[in-house]
Structures are given as structure tokens and as C-alpha cells.
Design a protein around this nucleic acid. Sequence first.
DNA 1: CTTTAGCACTCATTGAATAAGAGTGCTAAA
DNA 2: TTTAGCACTCTTATTCAATGAGTGCTAAAG
Lengths: 345, 345
Amino acid sequence: MTAVLNERKEHILRAVVVNYIKTAEPVGSRSVARFYPGGLSSATIRNEMADLEEMGYLIQPHTSAGRIPSQLGYRYYVDNLMDLNELSEDVAEKISSTLSAGKMREIEQIIMNSTKVLSSATNQTSLIMGPQFKKSAFRQLRILPLDDKKGLVVLITDTGYIKNKVIDFQHHLSQSELQQVVSYLNQKLYGLTIDQVTTSLINELKRDLFRRLEILEQAFILLEESLKEEKQIRVFLGGTTNILNQPEFKDVDKIRRMLNLFEQEPLLFKILEDNSSEDDIVVRIGSENEFEDIQECTLITGTYRIHDKTLGTVGVLGPTRMDYSRVISVMRRLVDQLNQALSSS
Amino acid sequence: MTAVLNERKEHILRAVVVNYIKTAEPVGSRSVARFYPGGLSSATIRNEMADLEEMGYLIQPHTSAGRIPSQLGYRYYVDNLMDLNELSEDVAEKISSTLSAGKMREIEQIIMNSTKVLSSATNQTSLIMGPQFKKSAFRQLRILPLDDKKGLVVLITDTGYIKNKVIDFQHHLSQSELQQVVSYLNQKLYGLTIDQVTTSLINELKRDLFRRLEILEQAFILLEESLKEEKQIRVFLGGTTNILNQPEFKDVDKIRRMLNLFEQEPLLFKILEDNSSEDDIVVRIGSENEFEDIQECTLITGTYRIHDKTLGTVGVLGPTRMDYSRVISVMRRLVDQLNQALSSS
DNA sequence: CTTTAGCACTCATTGAATAAGAGTGCTAAA
DNA sequence: TTTAGCACTCTTATTCAATGAGTGCTAAAG
């Protein structure tokens, strides 16, 4: 990857990153000297730090200040220097217990709880994208007559989504006519993902059915609305107030921009979706993020799956000065548990 | 109500309130003099203002500053001085169009949209409590067999709630057995509110049924979970970032406390529920609020109904320096539209 | 008795000047 | 190559005076 630093420089870079993550203050040569095992003097460290700055790994906020890691510095740290610390017992415990308590829970419930654990365990804002409805496979469609004018359409997918909608019948429908329509639809749609149920397919089905029964215009509404819904996948947020604890967000204006972002679900969705990869865990530091609004932040994402099918993405968003090691281990753990919790249902 | 002020004092109090609401700056005698129609000198105004302060309607932040309304001052203004300004055409339009666009919408969707209009039209944070599930009346219970091991329980209330849950059958159930159970349950439960379906009633039903069929343990889970849910009514928030625009929230610490509150749904629920009254619109200024966390704020609430049954509460929360007139007219309008939108579905 | 002009006074805010302190870069010696 | 030493830089905190908005009070005018 990037040019390899000699061991001493690596030590120093690590010292700066670790210290800065902890204190949020520029770190000077003296503190690094204390940190450095093979007792070097601060003067030597200063020279090395000047080098590291020239190479782009460190930044000096002003002449008489210590150094802070640059984006490149963080990147080098994450790629080469960071060692994943073990999760403390209680955090691991907390994650497991939150996710496995009652088995009989809705998928949304599971996810909402996940945002809570994730944000509290990382002290950052967490965001989790719910399972992508449009990638779920159609399993069953049912119509429950409520009275002779109304019915309840129920749509069930393989990922456990259950959508329903009350519809008005235009004309009276006999039980057997309803049966016919429903079983026809089930037969045609079975196994398709919601993605694949295009408007044209629906229209085709409609034509087909109208030939036999001149009714049921509305029975299709649920399907059509489900399609629209692809743009409305929910993103769940947790710990949004955590950013207020970060000194980099002591400026009210920055806070506003950030919270504003949090209110725009579609944007969050895009951000998460763009980062959803087959990879285990992705770390996007600063301007590595495509979205301007978070280019002062680091976004760490992971994907969760059910039966090896990618369902959604979980993310942690915070300032670039973030405890990478901790966040990554927490997220790894969470995704594991999430996978288990979901596949057992 | 409170002691009545003479006309001149009322004029002056109104001037102070209106000005302060607009500018967020303490208003001095000179600005009131400009505002006052019957050209009085600032000295006279000063005397009157000193009186008003002594009477508790005004406050002087420090000796050489103008006056700001006290809580009592706001109260007097709201009760006696405020004239409800007409809603501007475009705001009225916006509310109507948001709520009546597609008729075929879920109740949750309607409410989420409402929070958006409400917050953007008032520049404050809006909160809306979803229909109280527990006060809805049971209408129908259905069980849809999915395969021979699983079924979908569907619970429908008169307020349009549809709850569903996949259950595992412990043993195989014949179609007719299922029918029996279901119709028995429907008969027993019809018309009861969810509130009234107590655990003891459920247990009674269980005993009753077990005598006939030794199965269906899980069919009750939906019911039982529905009961638990009474504590989980969702509160929808809109425009939380609006508080950041208020000068009274320029302190990061206050912001944190406020946002923290916003993250605690159960608390929000309590706050709204306590304020839900049969009355049209309720204004709670400062310490009139029971909850400490919002005693620097004003909460204005209204209730929406369907067929004359109170369903939920909508609220606007902001600093006591709030444009009462505007918020109240917007809310009145919104509640009206909401009532219409809900009763037409 | 009420209103108003006049004036001294108060207090928050602003900006400049100063002091303190942290940390650097450079030089020269080890 | 490393290190001690020192002058230098730049931020932060503090003090101080100046500014100005607005008041309260008094005494005169209506």
C-alpha cells in the first residue's frame, strides 16, 4: 500500500494517533517521548515528527503546537499499526444479551435495539439500514375478506417482512373467485424478489386477470406501493447526541449541519448503501467518503446477512478522531450476533 | 383570571412580548415608544414598565437592559392580548396538500408527514403521538395458515391498526379446528378495547380453549405482545434541529439535554399523554409544564380524533419565546385536517 | 396628578494590551 | 546520530478601558 515507514516512525505515528484519539489535543514531542519505549529524547522525536509531517502523515495546527494525525496518518494507522483490542467482557455481554433476549421479536425491534447497543458501546452515532425490502423474495400473497366490501391484503417475504393493507372491493367478490385470483398471483410471483416485480409485470398480470374477472383493481395496490417503497427503506439511528460530546463538534453550526443530515433519511440511506460491500468491514476516513457532509468524519460500516444474503448495513459515524480499534471490534461482534439472531428466526 | 391590567399597560406588555418574540433581545422603553400608537414618551413607558416588572409580568435581565416577558407575562399575553393571525395562504395550502394528497395511506405515514409540516410551519420541534393502540377497540382476529407449521395472526382494530405476527403451531392444526378457535376468540373479544383485554381475561380464554383443543399456545402471543405494546406507542418527531436556530439554545449543554430528551421516546410519550386533554389546544408555558426538562420551554398541544374518539396528541415544543399566535393557528389547522384525513379512511 | 426632559449611573460587550505556557526549530556539542 | 539548550512562535487567558444601550430618579411642565 502506501510507502512503508521504518519502525521508529511507525512507533511515533502510533503514539501520536493513540494519544490524539484519547485526548483530542495535539500531541507534542514530550508526550511521545514518554510513550516511546526505547527512551528517546524529545529532540529526536521532534526531528522524526517533522519528517512525518513532510511525508503527510501528521499535521501541525500552528507553529507552536503539537501534531495531530492527518487523514493519511489515520489511514496508515488503521491499515498497519492498529491492533484490535479484545472486547471487554461486559460490552460483549451487553451485545449478546440485547440481541438474543426474547427470540420472538420483530426484525425492526432487533434493529432498533442494535442501534442502541452500537452507539452506547462506541460513544458514537450509529446508523443501521433495515433489510432491503426490494431484495426480499416474494413468498406469499393472501387476501383476507373482512366484510363484503373490504379485504386485507397480506404480503409475506422470505426475509420476514409482512406488509398489509386494507382494500375496498369495487364489486362483490365470491370466496372462490378470490381464491382463484390469489392462487394465480401466488403462482406467478413466487420466488421473485420485489425488485423483479416491475410495473410492467404487474400490468401484464392485470390484463391476464381482467380477462377472467373484471374486478380487483385495488388488489394490486399493495404490490404497487411495495414497489414505491424501495426508496423508503428505513434507516435507524442511535446515539445522535453522542456527537455533542466530541470536542470537534463544539461549534453549533457544525452540530446543526450534522443533525440536519440525520433528519434526512434518504440521504443516510444513500450513504449506507454506497458503503455496503461484500467486505467484512469498511473504514472510510474523511474525504474518502463520497458525501461532502461527512468529509470531516469517519464512517465505519459492516453488512449483516441472513442465509448468506446481504440484508443491510450497519454503520458508525463520528469524527475522524475515533477509537478505530474499539469501534471495529464492537461492530464485528454486533454483526456476528445480528447474523445469528436473524437466521434463527 | 389574573388581575386585569389597564389598557395602556396591556399595550405595553403586548409590545414587549411581540418585540421580544421577534428579536430575542430585551426590549427597551424607546422601542416600545415607537411601537405604541398614542405617542407616549419613553420616560412614561419606563415608569409603566417598572410597574409591570413589579407586578411580575416583565423581567429585567440586568439593571441596564430592556425588559423581557416573564412566564406570567406570556401567560397574560396568550390569555388576553394575543390575536390569532390568519394563516398565510401558502402555509394553509401546504398543510392541506400534505395531508390529503394520496388518500390511500397508512396512518403512520400520515403522522410522519404531519410532523414535517408542523415543524416547518412553526420553526419549532414537533412531536406527534401515534394513535393509542390500547384505546382502540378490537375488531377482528384472523389466523392465516402459511404452511402446516406456521401461521400468521392478524389483529385488526377499529382505528385502523393492523398488527401481525408469524407463529409456530406446536402441533398440526386442521382447518376447522383453527376456524373454531378463531371464531370463539372473535366472539369473546369483539368491541373490547385493547385496554380491556387484560392478562387475566387472556388466561381465562386460554383455560377455556385448552379444554377443547390442547394447542395454540402461541396464538396468544400476539395478543399478549399487543398488551405490552401499550407502553411503546411511538412518538414521531420533526424538526429537531430547529431548536438549534433558537438563540436560547446556543449553549451546547442545553442542546445536549434537549436532544437527549428527544431520544427517549417513553418520556416524550408521557409528556404528551399528560397534556392530552379534551380541550382544543393547550398551552403550557415554562414551569407550567410538569416535566423538569422542559421547564424552560413552552409546549403547545392539541388532540386529534377519529369519529369523536381521541386518538392521539400533537405537540410543538420550543423556547417560551415562541410565536404563540402562529403556532396555535398552524396547529388548529393541522388538527382539523388530520381529523378529516383520518375519518375519511 | 400625570407626563416628560434631563442626567447620572449601571452593566454587558468589545477590543487592545499583556502575560503565561506549551511546543517547536535550530545550533552546537556529545 | 543523538541530545541539550535556547530563542522564537503562536495560542489562550486575563486585565483594563472604552463604548453604548438603557435604566431610575428628579424636577419642571402640562
